[in-house]
Design a protein around this nucleic acid. Structure first.
Lengths: 135, 135
DNA sequence: CCGCATCCTTAGCGATACTG
DNA sequence: CAGTATCGCTAAGGATGCGG
């Protein structure tokens, strides 16, 4: 049992790590989670445990390779657990861990933001492109 | 003046767009903002308007090319405004727009999460690597 | 100071084929 | 079903040099 609470440890971590520094581990972590496949997989898992094939179907356009690769990195970082049911054929489920659950809502907000603000972005793009074209 | 409020428009947009679909515009937008340089630039601009050189210094490890390129895409999407002061030498400032300000806190949370939960991720990685090594 | 253009290298990623 | 392995390409992105 630590002499400091989990919340205190996180405060210390926040002071110790700085993602603006190129060599800081937090920078690397930020690079990983700032990834489109991570975003889509984590939000897909918001609905609860999912089978590999379910994720594959839900996240349109993801290749086997990227799905497996990204799931592995999420598992390694402790955001996702992989559970194998040794039936025939094999059944594999993926689920967010407690840690993954703390990140999920944040990422979910990003996805929602993209969907909600699409019209404004489209407007901005048209305006920008018009000015560029007339130049 | 629209017959529907901005909030209503966003609700409609949320129903219309789905980032899980590969061809949906919201998917492309999500891909863009799920980018490490976007994350760092937007959070850097949280402190208010910044000069190009300030951003360059603050975001360690970013190349001129990526900084300029990412700023341009953010400008096109209406998240950032670029203002030029025609002095000699030229002074260029970047600032979040109203739209950018709505995204900034969400992205800021992601960055904070990475910094705060680094210890837990490190622990998870060690555990994962140990199991892999012993296999 | 700001940033565009060019070259060039790397590695991210998709497609395909094969296994328990 | 749920992967692993290999090939091959494209595009991201760094380095350098020039221009307003």
């Amino acid at each position: 049992m630590p002499t400091r609470s989990a919340a205190q440890l996180r405060e210390e971590a926040a002071r110790e790590y700085d993602a603006f520094l190129a060599t800081c581990p937090a920078r690397q972590l930020l690079d990983r989670i700032s990834d489109k496949w991570v975003t889509l997989i984590v939000t897909a898992l918001a609905d609860g445990p999912q089978r590999y094939s379910e994720l594959s179907r839900k996240i349109a356009g993801v290749s086997q390779k990227m799905l497996t690769q990204t799931l592995r990195s999420l598992e390694r970082d402790g955001l996702v657990v992989r559970s194998v049911t040794p039936s025939v054929p094999v059944r594999v489920d993926y689920e967010l861990t407690a840690l993954g659950l703390t990140l999920m809502p944040l990422i979910g907000q990003i996805k929602s933001w993209a969907e909600c603000h699409m019209p404004e972005v489209n407007t901005a793009r048209s305006a920008y492109d018009d000015v560029s074209a007339s130049a």
